[in-house]
Design a protein around this nucleic acid. Structure first.
Lengths: 353, 353
DNA sequence: CTGTTAGCGCATTCAT
DNA sequence: ATGAATGCGCTAACAG
């Protein structure tokens, strides 16, 4: 079997306690003893058994990143890459769980049922469960929510200001002189508030610009994938008076919309300008390259992980909302000047009562 | 604290041993006892502590998927989604480790150093380490290699037939009447054999077609990313006699190449036809949509996971090589007819001596 | 500053 | 078919 802490103790002529102290960098160990123990550790090739340590400490050493979509959705794979790195920095193990937005899976993972006990904490991007259900979840471990805000319940929350971001995107189109600006990605039901907030920003911007709100220009989509965007765009092109610009609620929708436009021989941005949301890498290599709202994904990941570990370390303060910075990345699909709008620097927006 | 096996035992009036038997579906438990215990488990809401179980069983309950690139690289995120699902099916936990192709990280993960002891097994897609180094790794746990073949060492291996696939891609271009077919993605050094095999297929196909091999048409790239493809294509366009077709060693290179072509006003496929490799979703929504070699990623994932669990269950047979099927997905970037070539069905290619 | 010892929760060997 | 008892490897409460 593997070499244990007792083997090291015997080899170094000390007690297991002391070995443990050295391994865990306990301060009060004499320099000489520490050296001797370290040498024994090296000689024997000792490695702590993390399972035993975790059992003893009452932790599992794992946090889950709970995603509403499969990992091949670019926004989530880009975000995940950051989260994995942030967690690894802290010598913890991150596990990615794909719920596909199924309420059952989300519930099972978070509630102390199923594998709930497997994780010390969660970074949770919800989709299937609505705010009320999330708030009423019987979670034992700390949870940091991504995106969807939940107004009650003991949950920290990290997100972009969706209304401002949408205003920024649509404002850009207005500034370019577009008059019939469509929106793709609205969600009418209680599927969560993100889409609603973006529609709100869209609408407020039109009104502020004195443009009529035409609900035929607002297309709902069941999901935020490429095919939904393609289909929605086709519907818009079929209109008697098609739009001269489109604001897509994410880049994948924009990719689909762009494909429909190009296949139809519509020039982008001359005939129709396109703006996306998320700034996935794919958008930068489209032709034309996609103008998009670029949220600071690295900041999302690091804020979420940082806050989660604060909780794991025992911080019991009230739930915190973090607002993450964004900027408008102006590229060829709008070919606008270089005006831009930015979000705030990353800091807690407010402690919620 | 949480409810333990002892609590259940007391509640059901049996010994912990019996509860354990019921939980683990041990055959020889009387129906009545089993029922009683199950009822107690439900009443108390008992959940086995996996950490304790793993400590006792000498396992960690985790396997690692070791990736050479960050998760935002589409091929790997698509593959990972499948692997996570396959592992979850078996009530195991999969952990994604990103090495960024750094030999040190690869070595540390696999050798029983570092976190090596954390995992019961590995699915390893190598990049930084060459065959020799991999073969000489002091791994204790079972390893299934993805992609790169290692001719010795106790490693199972899952991969596509790279030579055939490249022949299929280039053959398609030849059949379309292209005469100056370039290749993007060669790797001259000992970076692994994948690129070399694709170049071999490329070269053999040209020769079989009576086309001259012109090494100015073969561009090496340090990585397989979009920018590498864009840059390589620019170099090809600068040639006195530019190519009329390009075979890119992966789709990301093709994405970059395509962008360069379109920005330069070159028509695709009329002036230059483009073929990629991997069939990532992104390619299907490009305009023109990308013709590409489509490996069966689901098969790669399920074969790899299945084989890994065979090893975890004690199978000590000799290393197995699995060959995964592929097909040519003909789309707009070559606009060829619908001729295609397919790889074999998924089955062990051969047991290696 | 360091040794002794008792569990963490479970699976399992030895009994019966 | 089931009980009693042991120990997986580690940390920490309790000495000293």
């Amino acid at each position: 079997m593997a070499v244990t802490i007792y083997d090291v103790a015997r080899h170094a002529g000390v007690s297991p306690r002391t070995v443990s102290n050295v391994v865990n960098e306990y301060a009060f160990v004499s320099a000489t003893t520490r050296e001797r123990v370290k040498r024994s550790i090296d000689t024997l090739g000792y490695l702590p058994n993390l399972t035993a340590r975790n059992l003893r400490r009452g932790r599992t050493g794992m946090v889950a990143l709970v995603l509403p979509e499969p990992l091949h959705i670019p926004y989530f794979s880009e975000l995940s890459a950051f989260v994995l790195d942030e967690v690894a920095k802290r010598s913890y193990t991150a596990v990615i769980e794909q719920t596909d937005g199924e309420p059952e899976r989300e519930r099972a993972l978070l509630s102390a049922n199923d594998r709930g006990r497997l994780f010390d904490g969660f970074i949770f991007s919800p989709l299937g469960l609505n705010s009320k259900e999330i708030a009423s979840l019987a979670v034992k471990a700390p949870v940091v929510l991504l995106g969807e805000r939940v107004s009650s319940g003991p949950f920290d929350h990290v997100a972009i200001d969706n209304v401002s971001a949408a205003k920024c995107a649509v404002g850009h189109l207005v500034a370019l002189g577009r008059r019939r600006i469509a929106a793709i990605g609205h969600q009418p039901y209680e599927t969560g508030e993100t889409a609603r907030l973006r529609t709100q920003g869209y609408r407020e911007t039109l009104e502020a610009a004195g443009l009529a709100y035409d609900k035929r220009l607002v297309v709902s989509t069941p999901l935020f994938h490429r095919d939904n965007g393609a289909e929605a765009m086709a519907r818009l092109l079929a209109l008697a008076k098609p739009p001269d610009a489109v604001f897509c609620y994410n880049d994948l929708l924009a990719v689909g919309a762009l494909r429909t436009l190009l296949r139809a021989g519509v020039r982008v941005p001359e005939d129709v300008a396109v703006v996306g949301f998320d700034d996935i890498e794919e958008g930068r290599y489209l032709t034309p390259a996609l103008t998009t709202i670029s949220p600071d994904k690295q900041a999302i990941a690091s804020l979420a992980v940082k806050q989660l570990f604060k909780r794991l370390d025992g911080d019991a303060g009230r739930p915190v909302d973090f607002e993450v910075p964004f900027r408008l990345a102006v590229r060829e699909s709008t070919q606008g000047g270089s005006e831009a709008c930015e979000g705030p620097p990353p800091r807690p927006k407010a402690g919620r009562p």
